[in-house]
Design a protein around this nucleic acid. Structure first.
Lengths: 203, 203, 203, 203
DNA sequence: AATGAATGAGCGTTCATTCAT
DNA sequence: TATGAATGAACGCTCATTCAT
């Protein structure tokens, strides 16, 4: 990689970093391009050299964030072979990722939703990819007879929604203080529901 | 109530109705006050007579929508005496309410989130109220020995989040075509988790 | 006319007057909307209330100027019955109008041309209307046997072009100091060409 | 001339060619330097090596175009010895030149006018040079007794204006389809005016 | 000679809000 | 109560120009 490319990548990344910070602080609509330029120690023109529009910048951010989250979760799942363990790993990793990167959480769970219809496709992709990961585990678990057959589409999305909402509460309300301590309760709920079924616990 | 007051209320309500429609179509940030004025067959000045600001109008809308949703769910729950039945009724009613009033769903699940920090308090209230309803059922069920003890805060929010996410998919992606047909799968998941525990099913 | 309409018309007219002045001083492209707003003692927003865009404002100006010029010339022609006298009156009036309203001349002969393709249609209309007036005279003169048959389309446009160019020199170069003193020479040229034909002069 | 100088000239010329094309398509104000750079397969920096500013580039273009037009007309006139024949040749050649090089016509008759006051001097030079050529013929014709005395300043400019306007109509309106077929009518009008004086036609 | 990333002033347009009527 | 003309701050974006390489 030449120096020029390196510097270019540096600048581009600086803009993305600043954009994440500013967008998640003020929201898409209330963020001025000038703010991002200032925060990235660039000029407005320099920013527009790397990103053709505010929308494109936000989109690039969503892409990056979605990919990073998915990568982490996929890696965590790859370390497990048992289907339900893989689902468990996904849950743990999502909580861990969001807990460790509050801005990423804000971006994906809050700002992307209200930013406008243009961004829904990106969100759809993320949701679908996540649900696919979860559904895959569940299907495998069903195939292995670990769990009874169920509507994996609904289950996968409900699973993801349950996690998201808990994260959302943490983001909006600061409750609970440590996001990851919700893990046992969430795990239990998703595996056994509210009726518990203590006697049949897997593993 | 005098005729004047009545007319005033009529006008005010017309504005709220129009605002719901326009806000949910374009989003908070991309909605111009003029549009709402036009849609409610009022003038901009007339609108500002009834609501002191755009923010206040949106807030009033959130209030109204939240209250309406809560009222419906509370009524549905009041008809049941068994704790888990009450939770079941809540689930059914939320799906029913959102399925029958897509704009309400958009407003509460999408627009309110991204509209800015000023509206988070309202959302917090709604989430908290909902979680309280659910947690109350669960606590009662625990007290009656129907279900084992569990973290009702997490369970209540996860429950609500699971529903919301399924509704969100329906809003963003049109999937499934009929929202309410997710009810059985959601019910089963929330009660028994993915492990099913068919033998212990309540009711 | 109510007071409100009157005030509105006043404001609108003030903007048009200021726009004529500023556009003709700096050219379309180099004129900032702020300048026009300042010159018309209005706010930018107020200006945009009356005209939806810079282009529309310029277009309105062209419309007004074209119509005013045509009206003047038509009136001057209406006072004459003899075909060639009518053409003569047109020539005289155009010179008179431009001499008395330098801004109008600049607008129609300079700024409108270079302002962009969007405005060519307006110019085409003006040129066509003018040529039609002249061609009409010439056709009548031919019919009455005053002059021999000729290509009236070319003659009419050449006539108009000859006048315009002399006005243009006056605008760009200040030569001659008094525009109207070119009238006799122009008249003679248009009627008899460079060969003069002194013996056959009409009238 | 060294190879380097040659290459430089080549590059410079490529820029001028591209500039003519782009300027006449979009107008001076709406043309971005990037477009010209792209069209000339150069970089922005490379373009600025050859021309110090956008204005200077346009000016150079005007210079080149004016000079080319004048050269052509002067050559055409040099082939004739009779004064009026020389004027006739000028008329023919102008029509021929513009008909064969539409971009040159656009540049000189449209874009240069509206591009701003900075370019008026160049236009003045062109107009003056042209008028001088025509006036020279006319003066000679007067001296030889071919035509009666007349205001050669006005006649020369009116002559040029008449031609220009016909060309302008062709540029803006596409009328007539073949510019050069206006030649006979223009020639007759300029020589004999609308009154024709058929009996006295020179040549 | 040439490149293209970077600059930053400037522009057209929008829109929440005000206020005279 | 209601109207809509008017305000003005703010914003996304452009582009001529510069300069390190």
């Amino acid at each position: 990689m030449t120096n020029v490319q390196e510097r270019s990548r540096t600048r581009r990344q600086r803009v993305l970093d600043a954009a994440l910070e500013v967008f998640t602080e003020h929201g898409y609509g209330d963020t001025a391009i000038d703010e991002i330029a200032r925060a990235s120690e660039t000029s407005k023109g320099g920013l527009y050299f790397h990103f053709p529009s505010k929308q494109a910048l936000f989109l690039a951010l969503l892409d990056e964030a979605s990919a990073a989250l998915l990568r982490r979760v996929e890696n965590a799942m790859a370390a497990e072979s048992d289907p339900l363990q893989r689902g468990d790993a996904a849950l743990r990793e999502v909580l861990h990722a969001f807990a460790g990167h509050r801005l990423l959480a804000r971006l994906l769970l809050i700002e992307a939703l209200g930013a406008g219809k243009e961004f829904n496709a990106k969100l759809n992709n993320l949701h679908a990819a996540f649900a696919a990961l979860i559904a895959e585990c569940l299907d495998a678990a069903v195939a292995q007879g670990q769990i009874p057959p169920l509507d994996t589409w609904v289950a996968a999305h409900a699973w993801y929604g349950a996690i998201n909402h808990v994260v959302l509460r943490w983001l909006l309300n600061g409750e609970p203080a440590r996001l990851e301590e919700t893990y046992p309760a969430l795990r239990s709920l998703l595996l056994y529901g509210v009726t518990g079924a203590a006697g049949e616990r897997v593993k």
